[in-house]
Design a protein around this nucleic acid. Structure first.
Length: 428
RNA sequence: GCGGGUGUCGCCAAGUGGUUAAGGCAGCGGCUUGUGGUGCCGCUAUACGGGGGUUCGAAUCCCCUCAUCCGCCCCA
């Protein structure tokens, strides 16, 4: 293929797709508005150091998935692989935290150099929420509810919310050595990947997909068992609040997140419609991150959801229920009016007419072909427009137009522009 | 980074060594040169992702390469 094309893992959104994206984005925007969140937009490019320090040097994301390069000034730059670190950086840089707790949302492209797969591209898009300066268990429940309700509003069903507590750094430290000690006595029963992780990132062994490892882990010490009393109490409270909100959840003591900054509450929302990349939304509490990035000790919690995956799930939901809310999101809009025009006098006038109707907020498609009327009618019909306006030289000379309903009943009528405009405005 | 599948017109797709590479959808033109939705007719791949090889002969076999998809890994 010598033709120009996108880089691997980079995807064009063609108009039909873009429409769906916009529909989802507007639902999300409205959802966040009602919840009193403010949007924040940060650059796609940051100093590499932000992610190295924020996400953790040892994580896979930082270690082998980042788009990192030197700019012309020899600064090491990285295309953001996730949103949280940037949001925290921006909040610190501009002193947002001194104005009190921040309830923020963001959206946009993220970049990870991975092998593309279903629900996984190299440039992908997230919508995320970050509550900075929120410490109470109630904020955990509110943040999770925000994600859950957004997904419900989009008409998605069959989602599973899994939740776990990762405790404090001390809890994890204690558990790590406990787990490593236990597993080291049984190394030969672990799959090769997990053996590797025993020294690099032992907690991640917990969500290994290997059957034998899973089985073995049934006997292993659990994270919940290693939590301090206080951590347990906190987690119980979060769970109780979720129950009170009637948000169904499942405890998953094996749920571990891949980014170092998570602690206490961690959760994932998964769908069975997605193949291997089942996580639609994931997040958790990150009380240590802000301080780690040079700010004041500030508790925080957030989540991110993957747009591409969300759209896949919506497509599945739309197919399952052709009249449901998901299907409405994917519907194709048609213009209200299609202007059929032909002739030396008529064509410039049609352009003017289109402009007037559009100025009144009507969706108007203007045929630019100068083709025979029959041809243009065919196109008008296919456009899905409810009305055809016919403007030929005959009408142009009379200062009128013909208005013909294309869908319902009714006769074609000849009207002045003014009358047509007020009539169509009422039809909208 | 590893493993497997696939690559024929914008989309779907037949074709599995032998004269001109089916068909459908979409598009364009016409029947219908001022009135659509149906119908009918016509047009649209010197070309089968790219390169090399085997052969008298390849979309069809072999090798390499690229792309894509699925899984591992990772994560949203």
């Amino acid at each position: 293929m010598s033709q120009l094309q996108t880089l691997r893992g980079m995807v064009d959104l063609l108009p039909e797709q873009t429409r769906r994206w916009q529909a989802v984005e507007s639902v999300a925007r409205e959802h966040f508005r009602c919840a009193g969140l403010d949007e924040i937009r940060t650059p796609l490019l940051e100093f590499t150091d932000l992610f190295a320090r924020g996400i953790g040097e040892a994580t896979d994301v930082v270690g082998k998935e980042m788009y990192t390069f030197l700019d012309r000034g020899d600064r090491s730059c990285t295309l953001r692989p996730e949103g949280t670190a940037s949001v925290v950086r921006a909040a610190l840089q501009h002193g947002l935290l001194s104005q009190g707790p921040q309830r923020l949302w963001y959206g946009g492209p993220m970049f990870r150099y991975e092998r593309p797969q279903a629900g996984r591209q190299r440039q992908f898009h997230q919508i995320g929420v970050e509550f900075l300066g929120a410490s109470s268990p109630r904020s955990d429940a509110e943040v999770i509810a925000l994600a859950w309700d957004l997904l419900s509003a989009l008409g998605i069903q069959g989602l599973k919310l899994e939740i776990n507590s990762l405790g404090t750094p001390e809890d994890r430290q204690r558990f790590r050595s406990e787990l490593v000690g236990w597993l080291e006595e049984r190394v030969e029963q672990l799959d090769p990947d997990s053996q590797e992780r025993l020294s690099t990132n032992p907690l991640r062994i917990l969500d290994s997909k290997d059957k034998r490892t899973q089985l073995l882990l049934n006997e292993a010490p659990t994270l919940l068992g290693a939590l301090s009393e206080e951590s347990v109490r906190r987690f119980d409270e979060v769970c109780a609040l979720l129950s009170a909100l009637q948000i169904p959840y499942q405890l998953n003591p094996r749920l571990v997140r891949g980014l170092d900054y998570y602690g206490h509450t961690a959760f994932e929302i998964t769908s069975d419609q997605l193949g291997a990349q089942a996580t639609v939304c994931g997040g958790g509490r990150y009380d240590g991150l802000i301080q780690q990035l040079g700010g004041p000790a500030t508790p925080a919690i957030g989540w991110a959801l993957g747009m591409e995956r969300l759209l896949l799930v919506i497509a599945a939901a739309a197919q399952a229920d052709p009249d449901g809310p998901a299907a409405r999101l994917t519907a194709t809009p048609a213009p209200l009016v299609y202007i059929i025009n032909r002739g030396e006098q008529a064509e410039p006038q049609a352009l003017l007419l289109a402009r007037q109707l559009r100025g009144a907020g009507l969706a108007v498609e203007l045929d630019g072909s100068s083709a025979a009327f029959g041809k243009q009618f065919k196109r008008a019909d296919r456009s899905g427009a409810r009305w055809a306006v016919v403007l030929g030289d005959e009408e142009a000379l009379a200062g009128t137009l013909r208005l013909k309903p294309l869908r319902g009943e009714g006769e074609e009528q000849q009207l002045t522009w003014e009358d047509a405009l007020s009539y169509l405005t009422k039809q909208r």
